[in-house]
Amino acid sequence: MELIQLWLNDQAVTVSVGTSLLAACRAAGLTLPTLCHLDGLTPVGACRLCLVEIAGCSRLQPACTTAAADGQRVHTHTQELLDLRRMAVELFFAEGNHICAICVANGNCELQSMAVLVGMDHSRFPAQAPQRDVDASHPRFTLDHHRCILCTRCVRVCDQIEGAHVWDVAYRGEHCKVIAGLDQPWGAVAACTDCGKCVDACPTGALFRKEEGLTGKQPDPAGPARLRLARDQGRWWIP
């Protein structure tokens, strides 16, 4: 295995070729915030929370989609990055209807935790209070679009792990919406295998099991990585 060395916040780190910057940061014990990233799925670099500064590169780059390179000098927690991340989380809260107190994922929500991580005590941006739908047509699961942050983890897990490609994104800009089938009620999409991987991958309370309306949501975001390991390396059991 070919090794490369890079500097993360002036600390030398050795990783194997092909490692993403995000994985390198995590291996070095750095906490980089992410919302759209999920181990086991292809990265998209859409939430912009894991942007880092790379010496010699004028643009900030998402750590999830950028490969670690030999000799790279990376800074992950400059004041600029901290300010940008907090502003991004404020925008997330302002664009949807994220009312933690009445949410099925309260206490188990990655967006809620992200606000803590970036130190967001309020959003400086007016809440858009978008009028969205709730799709409860599936017998076991519900999709509450108000809580969707368009991370597309559900889209990718269904496509890449389950192989059903029930989900996709339709429309554009602020009107973007995760759709089942060709924007049909979820319960009417025959391609859905009812596996629930999308629910487990969802970082917020947008996707949940119906009974979780009473118990609170218990997601399983480690699922895709576990399945990848099992399928790609035959490791079905991790001690």
């Binding site: 670099g45 912009r48 997330f92 302002a94 664009e95 368009l150 554009r172 800009g173 973007c176």
Partner: peptide, 21 residues
């Protein structure tokens, strides 16, 4: 820009809305 944003990344999708307002 707001209307033509593809909506994939947050700053463009949500930021252009706030900037226009």
């Amino acid at each position: 820009s707001r209307q033509e944003s593809c909506g994939q990344c947050l700053p463009c999708r949500a930021g252009t809305v706030q900037l226009e307002q």
